[in-house]
Design a protein around this nucleic acid. Structure first.
Lengths: 334, 334
DNA sequence: TTGAAAGCGCTAACAG
DNA sequence: CTGTTAGCGCTTTCAA
């Protein structure tokens, strides 16, 4: 069927080993021989069989990507970053969606193991002991993207969620707000509990503002839940309801803005709204949405870069990477 | 290192062939033997090496997905459909972005060939002879998703773009509009030239409305280009400018709505806006966006389903599939 | 119903 | 600098 390394060897009058050397850029080949082999390769349009290669070398140049949902903008931008860097280093990615279901996640990790991936990039909500066990079974490097390992064992790439939250709250507090609604998404629980909420509390307390549980709303990252959260807040009396809202993702934030406007109120005059994601959606609303900029593409790209280093067993200075973030102020804040 | 089929064979006191049979559900195994082997498999936590399997069987249970850009909602929803069905049939997908660059696309097709994928799902703007040649080199089935083969040779899944355009224009014409702006994206050229434009012309002519080239704007699918297109239209005198705008994707349509509103005009009273995509963005604007519903997820899912049939060499009644569409009327039309 | 054995196409010692 | 050879872990005849 297809042309194999053997065909090339025969046509070039060398052994398969030499062809293999040429293919792999091994320097121990006489220039003339190399040239001759390369000519034959071109002529026969030989392309090595990656599967055979993988079996012989135990390297597939394929990495597994386990993601909650590729149709979610957050993850698709992240994935784009992953794939770009993977391509740069000649890796392919096997992509699969977990929907954040633990059993699915574990099964997918096993699938990746069968496929003999050289590394795994994992995204999800939470990291359990089961994950750690399965990762170990993989026997290849794993990097978490946008997800923290509570034990700081598994390499990961994130932003400093706590600091970003603190800065955001601080900004709203400085602007005079004391009643600040906080709409959470189905965000990584650990991040929420360990970083977001404590940091929000800290900022509030510095301004003698109380952390009120009825200003906390648990959304699910959807536009609709932003709308719903707003309804809850607007239902409070004007004296007690929040005057600013900090939302943990853009879709919900859009829901919040529209929810407020649907009630005949104004953003940012009646309510300031600040988001925590910064997809292109931020520029697709009126007023445009202010947001903490989470560099999704970069998180993906840096994760993949880190993974390549791990796979090549290079020395790594720091495996718990925090990328810089900033806050982009647009129309939804004053 | 890892437990192999040989370890299982030894532990179960059978030959590797028998273990292989058990793994592959071959019925020619005595129930007791099967049971014994299965027990050992579980006990040893044996998972077959997919790479070795691929080499021996020439089937990798992996399919290639070549897509313009995974961070584009249109494609990410489509990809989700692909992956869900792939998983259902035990296939993994190798995902890669082409950015619609011809040379990249061809190179990626070759990469997929090296990786020995069992099939290919291709998305892009245009299908050239070069594509056809590379597809043939692959020697595995190929399905086009959201892309038509002008020669009707390569299986594909789409909606009837011409009919959808005709219906849309007809709706606007019936509503009394005679000056209708048409904002094109960087859509598949063939589809544009062969289906969209002729169908728009047809509808217009049926209402004695002329097809005016200055009502045609070439956008690039971005929000910004929607804004720009609107500026062009609004620059025309109120007597000659369009009163309705048909836009070929949602992001641009959002730009159009905001462009109009930024000029102090009203949607749908001053301008009706109709889009052609129907991502969740349609519900994330005020007024909400009316749109032709392109079932992206379904296009992906059906493409993948078709590909599985092709890979199994099943009989296929129709390889040029057109999925049903509908128009969802929301706030941007009267 | 089972086993033996020959590959699948390539890499990687090892020897020369 | 180049060739020989032994696998990589599995599937798949072919015989028994």
């Amino acid at each position: 069927m297809d042309v194999t390394i053997y065909d090339v060897a025969k046509a070039a009058n060398v052994s398969m080993a030499t062809v293999s050397r040429v293919m792999n850029g091994n320097p121990n080949v006489k220039p003339e021989t190399r040239k001759r082999v390369q000519d034959v390769i071109k002529e026969l349009n030989y392309r090595p069989n990656a599967v055979a290669r993988g079996l012989a070398s135990k390297k597939t140049t394929t990495i597994g990507v386990v993601i909650p949902d590729i149709s979610d903008t957050y993850y698709s931008e992240l994935t784009r970053g992953i794939e770009d860097v993977a391509k740069m280093y000649q890796y392919n990615i096997i992509l699969t969606n977990s929907d954040k279901k633990l059993d699915k996640e574990l099964e997918l990790i096993n699938d990746m193991s069968s496929k003999q991936v050289d590394g795994l990039l994992f995204m999800g909500d939470e990291l359990t002991q089961a994950h750690r066990t399965y990762f170990e079974g993989l026997k290849v490097p794993v990097v978490l993207a946008g997800l923290l390992d509570g034990k700081n064992e598994i390499p990961s790439v994130n932003i400093d969620y706590g600091q970003a939250t603190y800065d955001s709250m601080k900004h709203l507090l400085k602007a005079g707000h004391r009643k600040i609604g906080l709409i959470m998404g189905n965000m990584r629980q650990l991040i929420l509990k360990k970083y977001i909420i404590p940091s929000a509390e800290k900022a509030l307390s510095e301004y003698q503002a109380e952390f009120m549980s009825h200003y906390l709303y648990e959304g699910d990252n959807s536009y609709k839940s932003g709308l719903e959260a707003t309804a809850v807040f607007l239902n409070m009396s004007p004296a007690t309801r929040p005057t600013a809202i900090f939302v943990l993702n853009d879709e919900m934030a859009l829901g919040v803005i529209h929810g407020i406007q649907d009630h005949g109120l104004n953003v940012p005059n009646d309510f300031e709204v600040l988001s925590f994601e910064d997809t292109k959606l931020t520029r697709m609303v009126r007023p445009t949405l202010s947001s903490v900029v989470q560099p999704m593409y970069d998180i993906g790209a840096v994760s993949m870069r880190l993974l390549t280093k791990l796979m090549r067993k290079e020395e790594i200075a720091e495996t718990q990477i925090l990328l810089p973030y900033r806050i982009e102020f647009r129309g939804s804040t004053k």
